[in-house]
Design a protein around this nucleic acid. Structure first.
Lengths: 196, 196
DNA sequence: AAAAAAATACTGATCGGTTAGTTTTTTCTT
DNA sequence: AAGAAAAAACTAACCGATCAGTATTTTTTT
């Protein structure tokens, strides 16, 4: 890998870690560069602004997470219930392997609101996510597997809410919380809650 | 009401609004005071620091929201299911009347992490909340109403996760989202998900 | 007139970002 | 393969703006 690409990767990695822990505005460029043992000026050889870091991370969030979730879930064999279960598993495994990236959008919402361009990028990703889950649930309703008094969009938002909220609680209680058991719990509750 | 108390109230109100929309670090003292048509110096006649605003809001969050939720739910007549349903209603109504205060802790988590004292105050409130819901669920299990393969703490976290996450999604989609229908949806899913 | 509330004017520190110059890496020439 | 030239990566010092916070003066309330 090229030197330049390598540096950009570690800067983005450090930025993500700090943004998630202290917020975008709570993290200074010096904080980031100190973490990777470079000085501030070096950042501007690779990125044109602090905000570009954020946009790059949003992009990564979409391609590595949301797009992959949609792709592999679509390809997954089985009916809607099995697909939703797979999506839940994908989420949990992704959260285990990339905790910072996974909580990124959830944790950043407030601060992303302070900039109209951040806001736009954020909503676009969420829209893609919701539309996909919503279409899965619609399928399930047509197939008669999922309760037909549920609005697919609202049920999809609930799916996302459980995931977002669970991650939130998990981060708050990381040290004294059995991740696997927790996943099993909210998966059971959600799946039983939507099926006929 | 005393003049001084009145001013303090509107400053706190403005601070809350801005913190929730732009984050703690994303909001400057000038932003707050511009909003209430005072100058910066005036703030320090009432509060000793920016962080004191935050602690005061956390306190308000606890006394007006969490403590009230616990008190009125405890007093509510009925079995555990009815109490949990009441708690869900309380949450929804509180969110409708005090949207900013309601989302405050959820939206502020990341930034609160940048300060150890914020972190401590935050976790204490969440702990109180979780312990209460957990004890309700334990009751329900003993009464044979709630599935006994659920861990009460983890189910309580799921309850909180749904609430947190739903608020999050609601704020993101305020304009094109029917609040009441949304509440009905995640309430149905959660309650069906935990009952035998 | 006394006391409280607010405005004004300021401090030092830190912010994101820029610059000039140095070191390291890559590319080209032989 | 060796060495020169070019390009890329990085540092350190610095910029103007803005930050939280303070000291002092003016205005308002009682």
């Amino acid at each position: 890998m090229k030197q330049s690409k390598k540096t950009e990767t570690i800067i983005l990695q450090a930025a993500l870690e700090l943004f998630v822990r202290k917020g975008y505005h709570g993290t200074s460029i010096n904080d980031i560069m100190k973490k990777v043992n470079f000085t501030k000026g070096a950042l501007y050889a690779h990125f044109k602004s602090k905000s570009e870091l954020l946009f790059k991370i949003i992009e990564e969030f979409k391609t590595k997470y949301i797009d992959q979730l949609i792709k592999t879930t679509t390809e997954h064999k089985g009916d809607t219930i099995e697909k939703l279960n797979y999506a839940l598993s994908f989420n949990s495994e992704f959260a285990l392997k990339n905790p910072d990236l996974c909580v990124f959008l959830t944790f950043m919402t407030t601060e992303l609101n302070s900039n109209i361009d951040f806001q736009y990028a954020l909503k676009a990703v969420y829209r893609t996510y919701m539309n996909f889950i919503s279409s899965l649930i619609s399928q399930g309703i047509r197939q008669g597997i999922i309760k037909n008094d549920l609005d697919p969009d609202l049920a999809a938002l609930t799916f996302m809410a459980i995931h977002d909220g669970s991650l939130h609680q998990w981060v708050l209680n990381r040290e004294h919380l059995d991740g696997r058991e927790y996943v099993r719990t909210f998966r059971t509750i959600f799946m039983k809650g939507i099926t006929k």
